[in-house]
Amino acid sequence: MIPAPFDYVRPGSVEEACQALAADEDAKVLAGGQSLLPLLRLRLAYPSTLVDIGRLPELSGVHDRDDHVYIGAMTTHDDVLRSPVIHGACPLVALAAATVADPAVRHRGTFGGSLAHGDPAGDLPAVVLALDAVLVARSARGEREIPAAEFFADYLETALEPDEILAGVRIPKLGPGWGYHYEKFHRTAQAWAVVGVAAAVKRSDGGIEEARIGLTNMGATPVRARAAEAALRGAEAGDRVRAACEEAAADTSPPADLHAQPDYRRHLARVLTHRAVRTAAGWG
């Protein structure tokens, strides 16, 4: 199928991009286009203008900074999962990026694009949520930092204002002693996650000191499994960890769709959280 007509601008700087967005309330940002183009082709979206930010060098690249890793929004999934910096400092991001769609899509799709799209079934939103990342937005009004916990507002909606561009993401370095895993459950390799669990676990002697868990596709937004995190704090390996993970679906409102009903998603969240935590803790 074929998109409806739109205008196209390719700004030379982030400032220009912000101006273009501010000038037209029906304008939309074009990043890698891997979510947007299918929507346009199915005529499920009718932007007046696409503001192509895919070539702005300042929005691209992975930067190792003191206490965090900064990932430019236009860094492709492929570049993310090849980045030694990410593998070293925040491997959970790479683990999840490797599960996004398929190789060709990962060559075009961008880290920031999949966050700004705000799809709770996407793999990366749960990861930045679990890692307490900070999202950096730019507009003609300047720069603004948005904690991940405040970024995902509703289904396909984020805290970005219409004239704002997601410029990059700060992923805090958690330091030594942490293990990571992204457990994705899907029916076919290229299908969206029915449920996904992003887990970061800090081990103590024979148990868990701290765990952070983000859930994919367990609500209108990605969510943290706070109850499970609390129950895991100080839990020893074995039945206590299993019991703690039973809390994973607490306070979630998972969707009902073609691929699963809410009760099954809740069940999966519990099972997959246990698996993700065990693998992250190195007990897999």
Binding site: P38, L42, R187, T188, A189, Q190, A191, W192, L258
Partner: peptide, 12 residues
Amino acid sequence: TMADYLLPSAAD
């Protein structure tokens, strides 16, 4: 669409 009608790939 092929996003909802699930055809198996080589990986499946």
